[in-house]
Each structure stands twice: as structure tokens, then as C-alpha cells.
Design a protein around this nucleic acid. Structure first.
Length: 425
DNA sequence: TCTGGGGTCCTAGGACCC
DNA sequence: TCTGGGGTCCTAGGACCC
């Protein structure tokens, strides 16, 4: 039997932190932390920050003392910058292999079917060096006969400096050793709930999971756990997805910068999210058939709790901001309970049943406005040229006191002329 | 005393991912 | 005072149909 063509997974080390470091070399060697939206919790940590014991997802307010004590450099997340750096990294990767799947903002799978005769680890070292030279982003690579093993190899390359940034799990020997050494919760697809069930069976390592019978795996979890077991054993069940499948849904949800108690402010925020949702629909060239809006109080705080949610059909299917705002506001008003002392901390707009406009079913009574597309395109052009929300619906309000916090934002170095990095003479 | 069976579709919720 | 956002897939269970 011919060996299956291997996969590689390349990913950026502490990706968001590395993006910040590219443009400010003083951050090199310093503890650096990137916070989630609203400066809420830790989502990217430099090695120095990990060494201080700060875990992924830790709320920022719980580590304020540590931040001060160790002079941790803190950044609000700058998705414009990270997205553009991701695009640059993938442009370099695309020169190495025609078979790529961009899996997330910082991870890309490569199909290596055409490289069977090459020295794969050497080629991957070359890839790392080229990405580093062209973009400044440090990476690690895992190689394996399945995606799950390539992911595990990547984890090994990151955790163990002796691999030199590339870990090849093609061979039986290295694969068995890594599987024995890694806890089962480090395997792709094994979360806390499944890890707990496995622990109850005495399965604690990746090797233990590999040795589970596929039938038992399916009974314990679902077909996805069965696939994971087979993939750990070297049987490829997950193919490279080079063409991104059509999106099924889309969401714009945000925490508020401060609690919202009035219907007026809630309406503004939800109108703003619906506006952003419309931009996303049009950018993807799709229309939506269903819209839901929600808002809720904090689960972490005392006081009255409420989770309001309503959904509605969009007939005809649309990507027109005006229709989306109207539908979203109707949902919010229907779910509003009159305040009652509730301090709302988050709201969102969810779109479903997405399809290309030409595939949308015709409607008998409600015809789409013929000028809608041209109007939306004009608004999008203005905002692309002059900055987001140069033109915006009045329903969003002007002051927007509910807007999220971002106190530590770095410049959008690569996408805004007025925020270009400066070089001292 | 005795009250079918099998199929589809939809939704809510859980689990996981980055 | 302060706890992110945006996705996917899978299953169970209810509604509905014949």
C-alpha cells in the first residue's frame, strides 16, 4: 500500500504578539500581552508572559498587579493589522505549495502530495526561514500523514525547542514517542468535556486515545471522536479543504464598554451591529434569509438577569442595511422587558440561511428594491475610501457611549497611510 | 383488553476550534 | 469597576406527515 501523502501545518508563534513585535522591536524579549475585544481577557501571550503563569482567557482585571509588577506591555487587539499580516504570511506559503488550506488567522495546512521525494523537514525549515524573512513572523511546522498528526507535530515543535521548529511525525518511531508524551487534551478536537470522559476510562495520553477502539470512541463521543482515533493511528479522514465552503451563518456580537440600561441605547448598538452585518454580507457577496437579535445581562454579576432574543425571516432575502436594521430593531423591541433595572452588557445580530443572491428564492409579494444594490455599493465605496462609518445610518446614534473599550490600540501599520511606521533618522 | 411505524425536517443545545 | 468574538459540526427530540 502506498503511503498517504503527508500534511504539514504551519502556524505563527504567539501570532498576535509577533505581529506587534514586527513593528516595534523594543518588544523583543519583553513580556507582551494582547487582550480580547473590550480589553477583556488575555488572548495572546509572549513566552515571557506564559512563563509568568498567565493563562489563555484570563480576565485582564485579575492580573492587573502582575502586569504592573513585571511591566508587561499590553495591547488591545488590532484585527486590521493581524488580518493583513496573515494575508502576507499566506502569500509566502502559496509560493511553496499549490495545495493549501487557510485554517485560521494564524494556521495553514499544506498538502505535500507533490513533495514525496523531497526532504520534507528541510523544505519546511526553508519555508519558516522565508516566512520570517518576508514578514518577520516566527512560525513552527508539524508534518504528519493526517491533519490531526500534523497538528500534534506542530504542538510538539512549539513546546520542544530541540525540534528546531519543525517536527515530522511521518516515521513510526518519533510518532510513537510524541503520542506517549502528549496529554490527550492537547489532541486537536479533544476539549475539556471529552478529556474528562476519557480520564474516567484511564486514558490520559494521545497514545492511549490512539489505542482506543474506534467503536468505543464513537459510543463515548460522536463520529468526530472516532475520526480523531483513526487519524491518530495514521488513517487520514479529514481532507485538505482548498476551497472555503459557503458560509452558513454570520454574527456580529459585542460587549458594551459600559452597561446599557435604556432601550434607546440598546437600539443604537443593535442598529450598529446590523449595519456591520450588512457590510459583511455584501463583502461575501451573499444575502441572508433569517435574522436574530439578542441582548443579555452579565452572568458574572448580581442583580436582575435577562437574556432577550427574537428572530425573524427576511423576505425577500437581503443584504440591505436598511432592511437588516428594521428587522433587528423589531426583534429587540419585541424582546425588551421594560428595563426593570437590568444592566445589559452584550448584544448581537445573527444572520442565517445565507446564499448567493441569484440562488435566493423569488417572492410573490415583496420584491427586492431595484436600487438597493447600487445604493449599498455606493455606501460601501465611500466607507472603503474614507474609513468605516464615514456614511452611517442615523439609527446608530452619534455619541455611542456603549462602544467597546480599546485603550491600548497599536497603529494599523500596514493598511492606513496615516499610521505607517516611522523610522528615526 | 386493545391505541402503529417510519420517515423527514427543524431547532436547540452541547462541544469544540482559534 | 473589570470576564471576547465568530465560526463549525453533531445529536436529540419534537413536529409533522402518510
Amino acid at each position: 500500500m502506498a503511503a498517504a501523502p503527508p500534511f504539514a501545518l504551519i502556524d505563527g508563534n504567539n501570532f498576535y504578539v509577533s505581529c506587534e513585535r514586527v513593528f516595534d522591536r523594543r518588544l523583543e524579549g519583553a513580556p507582551v500581552l494582547v487582550l480580547s475585544n473590550n480589553d477583556g481577557c488575555a488572548i495572546a501571550r509572549s513566552q515571557e508572559v506564559k512563563a509568568l503563569g498567565i493563562k489563555m482567557g484570563t480576565p485582564a482585571f485579575k492580573i492587573r498587579d502582575l502586569i504592573a509588577k513585571h511591566s508587561i506591555r499590553v495591547f488591545s487587539s488590532n484585527y486590521t493589522l493581524y488580518g493583513d499580516m496573515s494575508r502576507r504570511v499566506n502569500a509566502v506559503i502559496a509560493d511553496f505549495s499549490p495545495d493549501v488550506e487557510v485554517y485560521s488567522i494564524d494556521e495553514t495546512f499544506l498538502g505535500l502530495a507533490g513533495f514525496a521525494r523531497r526532504d520534507l523537514p528541510a523544505m519546511c525549515q526553508d519555508l519558516r526561514a522565508t516566512v520570517a524573512r518576508c514578514t518577520g513572523i516566527p512560525t513552527c511546522v508539524g508534518i504528519g500523514p493526517t491533519k490531526t498528526l500534523a497538528k500534534l507535530g506542530n504542538a510538539a515543535a512549539k513546546k520542544r525547542p530541540e525540534f528546531g521548529g519543525v517536527c515530522d511525525l511521518s516515521g513510526e518511531g518519533p510518532r510513537a514517542a510524541v503520542l506517549r508524551a502528549f496529554p490527550v487534551e492537547d489532541v486537536w478536537g479533544i476539549g475539556p468535556a471529552t478529556a474528562a470522559k476519557l480520564a474516567a476510562l484511564g486514558i490520559a495520553t494521545a497514545a492511549g486515545l490512539r489505542d482506543m477502539s474506534p467503536k468505543q470512541a464513537r459510543a463515548l463521543g460522536t463520529v468526530t471522536l472516532e475520526r480523531t482515533v483513526l487519524e491518530l493511528g495514521g488513517l487520514s479522514c479529514l481532507a485538505l479543504e482548498e476551497v472555503a465552503p459557503q458560509r452558513k451563518g454570520m454574527a456580529v456580537t459585542r460587549s458594551f464598554g459600559r452597561p446599557v440600561t435604556s432601550l434607546d441605547e440598546l437600539r443604537e448598538a443593535v442598529a450598529a451591529y446590523a449595519t456591520r452585518a450588512g457590510e459583511k454580507l455584501r463583502a461575501h457577496g451573499v444575502v441572508a434569509g433569517q435574522l436574530a437579535a439578542f441582548f443579555h445581562t452579565s452572568p458574572h454579576r448580581d442583580g436582575p438577569h435577562h437574556h432577550g432574543q427574537r428572530s425573524t425571516r427576511l423576505v425577500p432575502m437581503t443584504a440591505d442595511t436598511r432592511g437588516l436594521i428594521g428587522a433587528a430593531l423589531r426583534c429587540v423591541e419585541a424582546a425588551w422587558r421594560g428595563g426593570r433595572g437590568c444592566r445589559y452588557v452584550k448584544a448581537g445580530v445573527l444572520l442565517d440561511d445565507l446564499c448567493r443572491p441569484e440562488d435566493a428564492p423569488p417572492t410573490l409579494f415583496a420584491a427586492p428594491s431595484p436600487k438597493s444594490g447600487a445604493l449599498m455599493a455606493a455606501v460601501d465605496r465611500v466607507n472603503a475610501k474614507h474609513g468605516r462609518n464615514t456614511l452611517f445610518p442615523a439609527a446608530m446614534g452619534i455619541e455611542r457611549g456603549w462602544k467597546l473599550r480599546a485603550a491600548h490600540h497599536s497603529p494599523r501599520y500596514t493598511t492606513r497611510l496615516d499610521e505607517l511606521p516611522r523610522v528615526r533618522a
